[in-house]
Write a protein that binds this DNA or RNA. Structure first.
Length: 242
DNA sequence: AAGCCAGTCAACCGCAGGGGT
DNA sequence: GACCCCTGCGGTTGACTGGCT
């Protein structure tokens, strides 16, 4: 049998929204907000749409306080980083980016970032041997919870993240690439860290990428002091598909 | 010019979970 | 506690577009 549909499919319009429908929904939301339920909104707004469709259209497209496309490198880094810790918690990830929707972040990941990362990891793995972290393992993929997880960062911050929110490891932790025994990896690397830049994130440049380190953080992030891990973020444009 | 293909993104679908009764 | 309703979420689909042959 299956679940009953949320509305009468024969009676509602589906597919792309027309400018007139957008105007009707925008006008209604600006006049009244969504004080009632999404289910009843289409009738009130004079729309022949499912309530869920109205909600999605408003939240992902019509809302005035959102941006579309044009993801910055900084946003990409934040998405990579949060994905490596949280997996596909798109709403959570989007909540950490200013004026981005979960749908936008998800599409951006699926169409660009995932491929870029996979290509970079594939290219990189032919050049180097372990140990290193070629791909951020989604949190959901962990058979057992890592002692490093959960990361406290994403759940508490109200405003958007910046590079500075990815905190430097405690002193004395080794660059994972240094363990390869190649002196060139460390000697030839450059490091952007709290010590050198005043910033509190750490990214060690190795062979065309950055190993971004994470630390545990208290609710205000300022109290972070426990190293949690990190992942490799390749920046070499020659490794990118796009 | 036409057809094909891959990339992009808006929109849909179904499930999970919260809140109310 | 059980049930129902509604919202939010993540996965997936399909229309559209631009580039290539």
């Amino acid at each position: 049998m299956g679940r009953a549909p949320c509305c009468d499919r024969a009676a509602v319009k589906r597919g792309p929204w027309s400018p007139e429908e957008d105007d009707a929904l925008r006008d209604y939301m600006q006049r009244h907000g969504n004080t009632g339920s999404w289910i009843t909104l289409p009738n009130k707004a004079g729309l022949k749409r499912c309530g869920k469709s109205c909600r999605l259209r408003w939240l992902n497209y019509l809302r005035p306080d959102i941006r579309h496309g044009g993801f910055t490198d900084e946003e990409d880094t934040i998405i990579y980083s949060l994905y490596s810790q949280l997996g596909s918690k798109w709403s959570l990830i989007a909540s950490q980016l200013e004026r981005r929707t979960d749908n936008d972040v998800k599409n951006h990941w699926n169409t660009k970032l995932k491929k870029r990362l996979a290509a970079a990891a594939a290219a990189f793995s032919t050049r180097r041997s372990p140990p290193f972290m070629p791909l951020p393992a989604p949190a959901a993929a962990h058979a057992q919870p890592s002692p490093l997880l959960p990361l406290s960062v994403p759940t508490v911050k109200a405003e958007a993240y910046t590079y500075d929110d990815f905190l430097a490891p405690t002193a004395g932790l080794q660059d994972p690439f240094a363990a390869e025994g190649s002196s060139s990896a460390s000697a030839g690397s450059t490091s952007a860290s709290a010590a050198s830049s005043g910033s509190n994130w750490s990214a060690v440049d190795n062979a065309g990428g950055f190993f971004v380190d994470f630390c545990a953080a208290g609710p205000d992030l300022a109290a972070a002091d426990q190293f949690l891990g990190g992942f490799y973020y390749p920046l070499d444009p020659t490794l990118s598909l796009v």
